[in-house]
Amino acid sequence: MKLLAIDCAASLCAACVYDAAAGNELGRQVLDLGKGHAEHLMAVIEAALKASGIGYRDLNAIAVSIGPGSFTGLRVGVSAARGLALALKIPAIGVTTLEALAAEAAAIFAGRAVLAALDAGREEIHAALYDEALALAYGPAVTNLVETTAMAERADAVLAGTAAPLIATAAGHVLDTGPVTSTADIATYARLAAAKGPGEKPKPLYLRGADAKPQAGFILPRQDPKGKQP
């Protein structure tokens, strides 16, 4: 099975082609954009396919990071994955950023629980705890530094994600730590999706609502047909 993996969850706009049967990555393209995923994603996908030497019709599935992460980036990535899957009549498979980060930490610290945690700002942390077999034990959920630190210490968990340094500092002693990035390597998403297989259609994992909201001061009051306000 050959998969195209897409990741727009953070600053990266990334794609790779992965041969699940051989366990090999065939080609990739990764841009560190910050913003502007919508304008660049299809070119990134085309570059990854060209590097792999295969075309769209050779793909058997689409993998995509579903968050938590950038509100707009997740919409772009998931929409592209679902659109391609529909056009090619192949499944789209979602993988969370937290499980991908946890998998990378587990590859370094085998047989340990992993707490994947992202600094979401506003004193919030987006976290998920995985047991020694990488089965989900908690989350994904919005929590805070005190609760996350206590959870990590109770489980004797390896840390992963951008909140890992904050948690280690709050604990006051050295904690084993894997990747401290906001997203995993693109091949990790492909590998995890291949292991999952088809399931529900992916949708963005939003643990917090969008920051952009209508300004109440610009909302005009409704009037009844006689010109009176209700």
Score class of each variant (00 low, 15 high):
residue 77 G to S: 07
residue 82 R to D: 00
residue 136 L to K: 11
residue 98 L to W: 07
residue 154 R to H: 10
residue 49 L to S: 13
residue 101 L to E: 05
residue 140 P to S: 14
residue 140 P to H: 10
residue 137 A to P: 00
residue 118 L to T: 00
residue 72 T to I: 05
residue 84 L to D: 02
residue 126 H to Q: 10
residue 100 A to M: 10
residue 84 L to R: 03
residue 103 A to D: 05
residue 133 A to S: 10
residue 62 I to L: 07
residue 140 P to C: 14
residue 91 P to A: 12
residue 135 A to L: 10
residue 142 V to P: 00
residue 153 E to Y: 08
residue 56 Y to M: 10
residue 70 S to R: 04
residue 137 A to W: 03
residue 141 A to Y: 12
residue 68 P to W: 07
residue 141 A to F: 13
residue 68 P to F: 12
residue 68 P to D: 07
residue 136 L to H: 08
residue 145 L to A: 12
residue 155 A to N: 06
residue 114 V to R: 03
residue 57 R to Y: 11
residue 63 A to V: 01
residue 54 I to S: 12
residue 47 A to P: 00
residue 84 L to N: 06
residue 102 A to T: 02
residue 113 A to M: 04
residue 132 E to W: 08
residue 131 D to H: 06
residue 116 A to F: 09
residue 117 A to G: 09
residue 114 V to N: 01
residue 144 N to G: 15
residue 121 G to W: 04
residue 110 A to E: 06
residue 68 P to M: 12
residue 149 T to I: 02
residue 61 A to N: 05
residue 109 F to G: 05
residue 128 A to L: 04
residue 49 L to A: 13
residue 96 T to C: 13
residue 147 E to S: 15
residue 140 P to E: 06
residue 104 E to C: 14
residue 126 H to L: 12
residue 77 G to D: 04
residue 50 K to L: 14
residue 64 V to I: 03
residue 103 A to S: 14
residue 155 A to H: 08
residue 84 L to W: 11
residue 90 I to S: 14
residue 58 D to C: 12
residue 95 V to C: 11
residue 147 E to L: 15
residue 121 G to H: 10
residue 47 A to K: 10
residue 85 A to S: 15
residue 137 A to T: 01
residue 138 Y to V: 02
residue 89 K to F: 13
residue 150 A to L: 10
residue 120 A to M: 09
residue 139 G to T: 04
residue 145 L to H: 08
residue 63 A to D: 02
residue 54 I to Q: 08
residue 142 V to R: 09
residue 147 E to D: 15
residue 50 K to D: 09
residue 84 L to Y: 11
residue 112 R to I: 04
residue 151 M to D: 00
residue 134 L to H: 04
residue 83 G to S: 13
residue 52 S to G: 15
residue 154 R to G: 13
residue 78 V to P: 00
residue 64 V to M: 11
residue 81 A to L: 13
residue 121 G to A: 14
residue 101 L to M: 09
residue 94 G to W: 03
residue 121 G to N: 07
residue 99 E to Q: 14
residue 63 A to G: 07
residue 99 E to G: 14
residue 65 S to Q: 04
residue 137 A to E: 06
residue 105 A to P: 00
residue 50 K to Q: 13
residue 119 D to N: 13
residue 143 T to C: 14
residue 148 T to W: 11
residue 76 V to R: 07
residue 103 A to E: 03
residue 142 V to N: 12
residue 73 G to W: 02
residue 103 A to N: 03
residue 134 L to D: 02
residue 62 I to C: 09
residue 63 A to K: 02
residue 52 S to T: 05
residue 96 T to S: 15
residue 118 L to F: 15
residue 106 A to T: 01
residue 154 R to C: 09
residue 69 G to K: 05
residue 62 I to K: 07
residue 129 L to S: 09
residue 138 Y to R: 06
residue 57 R to T: 11
residue 115 L to A: 15
residue 102 A to S: 11
residue 141 A to G: 09
residue 132 E to V: 14
residue 69 G to D: 03
residue 108 I to G: 01
residue 112 R to A: 15
residue 52 S to M: 10
residue 137 A to S: 12
residue 65 S to F: 06
residue 104 E to P: 02
residue 111 G to P: 00
residue 98 L to F: 08
residue 59 L to R: 05
residue 102 A to I: 05
residue 148 T to D: 11
residue 69 G to Q: 05
